[in-house]
């Protein structure tokens, strides 16, 4: 019995020594030694939205850079204030420029105070940067959401109506304004037609209005994509632009006051 215990002890010691002498990390610490310095593709990263909401100047672009990991964590400034943002209406051939915000608190933002996008118009975007590839994108502004006349019904705890769907609108967000808060409904779409929507709310609340927003395909795709914060996880880049990253899209908005 004693001899057996001795043999087992020696086997354990040999095993431990073998393991520790192998080229193993001694703690779950530094990254894999053979990590390749992977090629980083520089480019602009933008978010641009054309808002057909009957308010001039509400559309904007935010332009910044994609960076190497080290620069992101060590506090680099990503905003690009030197880019030129050109928008062309392919229907009218009109071109307009968006200018960088004058307030440094809004670095990276580009505005045009007179611009009001037109529903069903197609726009082409070109953003040129001094050191990064020229970014291109396009969008078609959806039709304004329309409630079927005579379908709106408001009771003490319910608001219902019929929405005229449009095939150029890929997602609808509908907000019922109850004064201090909104109730939201959201649904995807790929057709023309009629769709009934109902809201129910607690008694004693007074609905003051409705806001209906219709998104184009680009915004629908981008806003429903999920950023990954799980490290070392592959996720496909959801982008609606060429030669860069991010999203250029459009929405149409209808607001109704009760």
């Amino acid at each position: 019995m004693k001899k057996r215990i001795n043999i087992i002890c020696w086997l354990l010691i040999i095993l431990l020594v073998s393991i520790y002498t192998c080229d193993l990390p001694t703690q779950p610490g530094p990254m894999p030694k053979d990590l390749i310095d992977l090629k980083f593709e520089p480019g602009l990263n933008i978010f641009g939205v054309l808002r057909a909401d009957s308010i001039a100047g509400s559309s904007f672009f935010h332009v910044e850079r994609a960076v190497k990991t080290k620069e992101m964590y060590e506090g680099g400034d990503l905003a690009d204030t030197t880019a030129t943002v050109k928008l062309t209406d392919t229907l009218s051939n009109a071109t307009c420029w968006f200018n960088p915000a004058t307030d440094t608190a809004y670095d990276g933002y580009y505005y045009n105070s007179n611009f009001m996008p037109q529903p069903e118009h197609h726009y082409q975007l070109e953003i040129q940067s001094a050191i990064l590839p020229t970014l291109q994108a396009e969008t078609t502004v959806p039709r304004k959401p329309v409630i079927v006349p005579g379908s709106l019904d408001i009771t003490s705890q319910r608001v219902s109506f019929e929405l005229q769907l449009s095939s150029d609108t890929y997602q609808y967000n509908v907000y019922l304004n109850l004064g201090s808060y909104f109730i939201e409904k959201q649904f995807s779409n790929n057709r023309d037609g009629i769709f009934k929507i109902e809201f129910e709310f607690p008694s004693g609340q007074l609905p003051t209005g409705l806001t209906i927003i219709g998104y184009d395909q680009n915004l629908t795709t981008y806003l429903n994509s999920s950023p990954s914060f799980i490290p070392q996880t592959f996720h496909e880049m959801v982008t609606t632009v060429e030669n860069g990253y991010g999203c250029f899209g459009s929405l149409a908005m209808t607001t109704i006051q009760f």
Partner: peptide, 8 residues
Amino acid sequence: TWETGMLM
């Protein structure tokens, strides 16, 4: 999958 860079 090792990331090559980051963006917002």
